[in-house]
Amino acid sequence: MNKSLNRLSYPYLLWTFIMIVIPFFLIFIYSVTSSKEGSPVIFQFTFDHYREFFSPSNINILNKSIWLAFQTTVYCLILGYPAAWIISKINIRKQNAIILFFILPMWINMLLRTYAWQIILGRSGILSTFFNIINIKYEGILYTDSAVLIGMVYNFIPFMVLPIFTTLIKIDDNLIEAAYDLGASTKETFLKIIFPLSLPGVVTGIILVFLPAVSSFAIPRLLGGGQYVLIGNLIEKQFYLLGNWNFGSAIAIILMILIIISMMFMKKTDELKSRGGGTLPW
């Protein structure tokens, strides 16, 4: 009986080989070969696509992507942590409802929520009407860096709040009481007890925000305009506009390596996670 069960995994082994392993090898092969007119018939080994990536303009794009993801993560953390903390102190009956209201917008299509910001921030949008009424000059910030940042924070903030919230509610209240009894101030209790214990949630939040933020391309495209190019947009351009799959594959590989490095960077805290939790509440 036990032996016959393991055969059930064979179809999936084949499936992962075709749908995950082979495609990965294909982009790798494309990234190190050159071909004429987009046909891969003549394989010619080359590192040119990687070299091409490390040109100043492309490095700029990479820096811009990382910087935007970093800013998004920092703003999500600064705005999200207090929210998670406040929610964690509300009584349980209300808490569930509030958490539901936090998750609800995430079920609305991400592109629709981004589109909503187009309406608000646009030149003739609701914000400019509002500023006109109170007589402040407002040109509209749609298609600027700030618009992209607002859209990113808006989309990703629940992914920061929820894991922090789940670690905060797991903290034993007795620990906090003990800290106060032993003479710690509110500030000390927070810095030395509450914050360190919530770290696994913070790390999960950072991973859930930073990683998808680096590679996002729909939000920058809709709020930053056609001129706003991040690494995701650069990949899209190679495949859709320029037909340069080899270069596009090289960027995809570089993006993957970047993600793997950041994952390893946070692996240490993964051990913390297995001890403490810090997952999403579903």
Binding site: P23, Y30, G232, A252, M256
Partner: peptide, 24 residues
């Protein structure tokens, strides 16, 4: 081994998964 391969589509950026399938 299977679980590691299984993790790839989860941690990989969507756009990398997308173009790799497109090429396939």
């Amino acid at each position: 081994l299977v679980l590691n391969v299984n993790y790839l589509p989860i941690i990989n950026p969507d756009i990398v998964t997308a173009v790799s399938l497109m090429i396939l």
